[in-house]
Amino acid sequence: MGILVDSSTRVIVQGITGREGAFHTKLMLDYGTKIVAGTSPGKRGMYVHGVPVYNTIEEAIREQGSIDASIVFVPARFAPDAVYEAVDSGLKTVVVITEGIPLHDELKFINYARKKGVVIVGPNTPGLLTVGECKLGIMPGHVFKRGSIGLVSRSGTLTYEIARELGKQGFGVSTVVGLGGDPVTGLDFIDVYDMFLRDQGTEAVVLVGEIGGDAEERFALYYRGLSVRKPVVAYIAGRTAPPGKRMGHAGAIISMGIGDYSSKRRTLEESGIIVADTPSQIPSLLGSLLR
């Protein structure tokens, strides 16, 4: 079970011959991800950890059969081109790991993909992982124990920290989705929560937000209006972040009066969502909801 990807998902790695691409291809294969091909322009005929490399997705599909999803490790300058190729080749899910893509390029390919019904995860994401089935990302797979908590987050290492805390208290994860750290991303909390609502393998959701933008507030208002829900525990990073400063992620900035911690926390709490003060509180709060 889980959302977006499972053990049958057939994957292509775009930018497979680069340092990052090759390194994580190995780790994803070790996790059990069904990687059927990779692309790297001009490198057709090569193999990376046994995975055949093609110049285009089109020829990969012709020779290897259908492909469902791609993961993009292409440098920022070439990443938009890689996303357009994946969308136009008929893939259903495109995970964009690349950090540093110009904002206006992102706006264009995200809008394009959404119109074509293609899911973009990221950009600037650790990726996604359905525990025990498929890892389409760069997260350390072993920290996620199998279970029924859906995890959706705007960050990377903080998500691993929280998954470890959950595991210590016996809570496992169904799927973890990294939304990405940029100001605009393909998916937001509402999209992913909706998928978790429909997933029989997910019992409750942990939402990991951060300062910047209003995705948490929008989720809170959406959640308030739902008649069927699964319990949510939230954690928001950046209580101590000053306004006008970018906190590492391009999207983590309080600007024009939008994106501060207190607005997020207040709106979530007004919708009946419990907000943890520290990552270590999350499991016990979750326990109180599920008991």
Binding site: S153, R154, A237
Partner: peptide, 11 residues
């Protein structure tokens, strides 16, 4: 990681 760094500050 940006998120963990902020969480450390907040803690």
């Amino acid at each position: 990681g940006a998120g963990l760094t902020m969480a450390t500050m907040d803690s």
